[in-house]
């Protein structure tokens, strides 16, 4: 069946800033964010397996490769470029950079968003809880342990201990 769609104007709220963009409704949020220059959101697999394209949609962790942009209209989107105003995320950025949590860096934005999503709900997670929370984010470089340590250390810093 041959059908076609017109590009439409979508009003998105990205990192607290209203953005209007013309896009096909079925275009992946991932691609639209990247057209906006927000290239910190990465494509690793395009099938929701690796988590490199993770963003927060209304505070919930979502893989942007599986979200049509039309479904993001009206939602509050947060990408790695917009996290610096939040202390949890800032701490995660510091501890990932200091402790070996980032190697090649391609999974790092997604990992930090998943880590922040966890700390938001559970400010003092155990290593087992960190493992579960990050199990949708694949990393091929680190063997994960320095990532767990970075999340645990960020949690400690946020708690001020």
């Amino acid at each position: 069946m041959k059908t076609s769609a017109q590009k439409r104007e979508f009003s998105l709220n990205v990192n607290g800033v209203p953005r209007n963009i013309r896009a096909y409704p079925a275009e992946r949020l991932l691609d639209v964010l990247r057209y906006l220059g927000l290239t910190g959101t990465k494509e690793g697999c395009g099938e929701g397996e690796c988590g490199a394209c993770s963003v927060l949609v209304d505070g919930r962790l979502v893989v942007s490769c599986l979200m049509p942009v039309a479904q993001a209209e009206g939602a509050k989107l947060l990408t790695i470029e917009g996290v610096t105003g939040n202390q949890r995320f800032r701490s995660l950025q510091e501890t990932f950079a200091e402790g070996g949590g980032a190697q090649c860096g391609i999974c790092t934005p997604g990992m930090i968003l998943a880590g922040g999503h966890l700390l938001e709900r559970n400010p003092a997670p155990t290593i087992e809880e960190i493992r579960e929370a990050l199990s949708g984010n694949l990393c091929r470089c680190t063997g994960y342990l320095q990532i767990f340590e970075a999340v645990a250390e960020a949690a400690r810093r946020c708690a001020g201990t």
Binding site: S4, A5, K7, Y24, P25, A26, R28, A70
Partner: peptide, 13 residues
């Protein structure tokens, strides 16, 4: 990405 989003209609009731 192996689909062309231009070929996909969207209805949002």
């Amino acid at each position: 990405m192996r689909s062309n989003p231009a070929e996909f209609e969207w209805a949002a009731p």
